[in-house]
Amino acid sequence: MRQGRCAMFSISKTVMACLAACVLASNAQAYEFGRPATPDEIKAWDIDVRPDGVGLPDGSGTAAHGKEVYDDNCSACHGDAGQGGYKDRLVGGQGTLATSHPVKTVGSYWPYATSLFDYVRRAMPYPAPGSLSDDDTYAVVAYLLSLNGIVPADATLDKASLPKIEMPNRDGFIPEPEFRVITNSR
């Protein structure tokens, strides 16, 4: 588009002027659309959590409290103790991935505990996503991991401990060769 404006000029006479105009237009352009995002509003919406723990909030939760959170908010769909519900099974299935009936659960399939925190916080419980406090989210994550035998029943999780958890299927994924190393000509 900016180049389009430049094309109106005679290139032979005004190349330098055109380039200068384009640079100016480019600099001015950043705020021609929209407005600057403030740090506070970015923080409010910046909910993703990476495997290295970047994005995890303060707070903590115990597996014991997580059972209460789970029973109140999750069991209606996912069943008691993470199985037997009519929605995704969350517990068990380890050792089944190479069989004709693989059971993919948090314990058998998910490679990162941080992804579980991210998912529960952004999407669950289904009728009221985002309604759990950060403490309750840590707690229910701890409970689900304890049900899968990945953390002890008396575990407490926070932003320091969660990224250190080694999930059983951590090395179960083969990234597509085309997208292992991303480069572009920008």
Partner: peptide, 17 residues
């Protein structure tokens, strides 16, 4: 590494990977 690109939209092969 969201849930959808780890736990959901990944393709389980016969060898379990």
């Amino acid at each position: 590494m969201t849930r959808w690109e780890t736990a959901r939209y990944t393709q389980l092969l016969a060898n379990g990977k």
